[in-house]
Design a protein around this nucleic acid. Structure first.
Lengths: 309, 309
DNA sequence: CGGATTATACTCAATCAGAGCATAATAGGG
DNA sequence: CCCTATTATGCTCTGATTGAGTATAATCCG
């Protein structure tokens, strides 16, 4: 219980890494910054020079990507044995963050590339209906996994968990369960990362794998963002200075992976006073011109409530 | 961006601490485990032998307190220069957790004591109306703090922030803003911890101070718990195996620091199927006997939704 | 037995959320 | 120039949820 152990030498075998889930949404396209040919999230060591974890992250992300980080939120911290090192008794503490940026990530940065995040989670995009991969691959595979359990009780529980996660048996799709779904697929041995340590399943579910737990971290970030947009005005961190309500809606839908009722969406945004008209109109792609809006930054000082949906 | 820096020696100057906000609520009394005469939260070093951060925490908390930890949730991770050490360039990463236990913490543990958490935040308990300290001390002090700003714009913003946090000017009390309120009082120099590094205000707000940022961590834990009970059935981690609906309500009120409408509370709990009757009745303190209920553990497998309020 | 106290069943109104209808304003093709 | 496709925007309707109150049922205590 003593705050600082006598065994100082033990503590010296610890390092700290910062890992970032850096998200943008240009034109309603949900993207995440990756490195190493999209097999890893950007990460860097936490160094003594950094004032704090948050500023450490901000420093090197801005240095690497060239754009300012609008919003940062801590995701999760975990400890692993240092896989890279010679000395397997070293521990690395990884602190992961979610960051939002509105910069146009068109030009690939020198060190990394922006990828549509559904490349990693093809089953998560329900904007155009449920992806076929769910009924074609995931449902039968999870059925087999459920049936493979020894006791009846366990079989029932496995299938119920699968049904809740993926909305089988009349249950609806819940877009916030991104992390639970990934973890379920992992336990069932259906993703490549699981096959590295456990018995792999006969057939893997499609979706780009990543190093270590990076894909799990990404899932954590997506899940956090999907819940957060509902009660905090964070989408605006991803929007350009002026935008139409449809553009805003498309951004929300891109993140949530589901579509929303257009009229109700507008009602919600307007009655919460989240935006104000710029006075200009957009010369959009076909159809009646739309008013341009900007985010009312004052809302950040007002209620710590309000979001979208 | 390289995951493992060349400068290995720098990373060796890092240590890791686990800090716990351990909560119980016997008889609707919200208590937190403290050490050092209630000036600190229990904490211990993360050691190489621990399988994971979570199990590390679980190990030493159970060893110290003697009761099992029902529910654990990570709160926040931050890095500080090592205040204890000789070498000020060492860094300590502190990973804080919220833990819930249902054990009766009557007998003081050898190392620590359970304290009502409102000893640390007297302004947070609105179960018996707004505490007088708010209108007597906090409101005038924050008014002075607001007026002390140079520019009109800043004065307005300061007061608006205070009003949102504490519900001044017709705004209602929002019990979830525990952390924001503590941070506001800190910035305004109204808590003892702030006086250690900044210019202290003329008069401090009552409430027991703690070492370092422990009181801020406690505020984080309370805030998290107050939001969580609304959409997850976590209160039950604090309840005995069988309880009346009023006992359950008292526990929720103790955590939230506000009272709820009795009939509506029951309606909510029952329609969500969170509990089931044990078949027994309680021979309570005066009044008509109440049915005893138990938590339906099956709900944990069902919807990842549902809570109280 | 009367009053205090707690339990529990209903009711009512205001608000909110989901879904749809209707109309307006533009572009582009014949 | 008219017709159609497309997007924008205003409004309605209905069922569900929420906040608050009324009414009645069991106990205990003196």
């Amino acid at each position: 219980m003593a705050k600082h152990s006598e065994r100082q030498q033990e503590r010296h075998a610890i390092g700290a890494d910062l890992i970032a889930v850096l998200v943008a949404a240009p034109n309603g396209n949900p993207v995440v910054l990756t490195i190493k040919d999209a097999t890893a999230l950007p990460s860097g060591p936490f160094e003594l020079g950094h004032r704090s974890l948050q500023s450490g992250l901000r420093d090197w992300v801005e240095q690497q990507t060239g754009h300012p980080l609008g919003y940062i939120e801590q995701l999760y911290t975990f400890a692993d044995r240092d896989r890279s090192g010679e000395d397997s008794s070293r521990r690395v503490i990884s602190i992961s963050y979610l960051g939002l940026t509105r910069e146009e990530p068109s030009r690939a940065t020198p060190q990394g590339s922006w990828r549509n995040w559904y490349e990693f989670f093809p089953w998560e995009d329900h904007r155009y209906g449920a992806p076929p991969v769910i009924v074609d691959v995931i449902e039968p595979a999870l059925r087999r996994w459920g049936d493979a359990a020894e006791q009846e009780e366990k079989r029932r529980k496995r299938w119920q968990r699968a049904a809740v996660c993926f909305g089988f048996d009349e249950r609806g799709w819940n877009e916030e369960l991104t992390l639970q779904r990934y973890e379920l697929l992992y336990e069932a041995g259906l993703v490549e990362e699981a096959a590295r340590t456990k018995e792999p399943a006969a057939q893997l579910v499609p979706g780009r794998a990543m190093d270590g737990d990076h894909r799990r971290i990404l899932a954590t970030g997506i899940a956090r963002l999907r819940t957060k947009i509902k009660y905090r005005p964070v989408v605006f961190e991803l929007m350009p200075p002026a935008f139409t309500l449809l553009q805003l809606q498309r951004a929300v839908e891109a993140l949530a992976g589901v579509t929303v009722h257009k009229q109700n969406f507008r009602r919600l945004i307007e009655q919460q006073d989240l935006v104000e008209e710029t006075g200009q109109m957009s010369s959009e792609t076909g159809g009646r011109p739309a008013k341009l809006f900007r985010f009312r930054h004052a809302v950040l000082d007002e209620l710590p409530a309000a979001g979208t949906k």
